[in-house]
Amino acid sequence: MSAGHSHPLHRPGDTPVHRLPAQVKIVAAIATALCVVSTPRDQYWAFGLYLVLLSAIWVVARIPPGWLAKRALIEAPFVVLTFVLPFIAGGPEVHVLGVAVSEHGLLTGWNILVKGTLGVLTSLTLAATTSPGELIVGLQRLRVPTMVVTIATLMLRYLEVIAAEARRMRLARISRGHDPRFLWQAGATARGVGTLFIRSYERGERVHLAMVSRGWVGAMPDHSTPARGIAWLSGLALPGLAAVVLGVALWP
C-alpha cells in the first residue's frame, strides 16, 4: 500500500506549470489533444509545431525527455500496428527504400503514430505536473459529477493497493521456490489472482473505513483557491497556439 504514495507518472516539482491549478491543466490538455486529432494527416509541418510547443512546456516544467520517453513506451503496441498497416492495406502502391507498400496504409499508419504519440505526450505532461490528488480536485472543480469523481478516487487508490499487494504475494511465492518464468508454473500465478482480488478487496475496505472515520462523505477536501483569469490565460496558451496551428493547417 505504501508504494502508492509516489506515483510513477507524477514528477513532483515547483515550476509555473506545476503551480497552475489542476482544472486549467486538464482543460488545456484536452483542448490540445483535440487540436492534434483534428489536424489533417498530410500537414506534416503542423505536427512538428505541436511537438515544439510541447517541448517548450517540458523546458518550463523541467521534465527530461528521457523520463518522458520511458513512459511513452505504453504506446508500443500501437506502433507495431502502424508498421504492419503499410503492408496489409490495399490501394495504390509507393516504393519506400525499394519496398512496395500501400500508400493508403502508409498514411493511415503515420496518422495513428503521430497523433497517438502527441496525445500520449500531452497526457504524460499533464500527469507529470499534476499529482493524482490534484487531478481529482481539478475534476471536482470542473463540476464533473460527484459519482464519477468518487469512482476515479477509489480506482486510483485501489490500483495502488492491488499493485502493492501483488508485489508482496509475488515475493512470498518466489521465496518458496516458485519461478514464474516457467510456463508450467503459471497455474500458481493464476490462482494467486483470485486471492489477490479478495485481499485487495479487504484492504480497500479497511482504507475506506479509515476514511469514513475521519468524516469523508465522498468528496476530497479542496484546499486550492479558484483559478483566476491569469491562470486560465497562461494555462490555455498551449491549446491557444495549437489552435492557431490547426487553423493554418485547415486553411484552404
Partner: peptide
C-alpha cells in the same frame, strides 16, 4: 469528529502524497 480512531495498520490510514 468526536471519536478519533487510530487503526491498527497506518498504511490503511495514510493515503495522501
Amino acid at each position: 469528529r468526536r471519536v478519533g480512531i487510530v487503526f491498527q495498520d497506518p498504511d490503511d490510514q495514510l493515503f495522501m502524497p
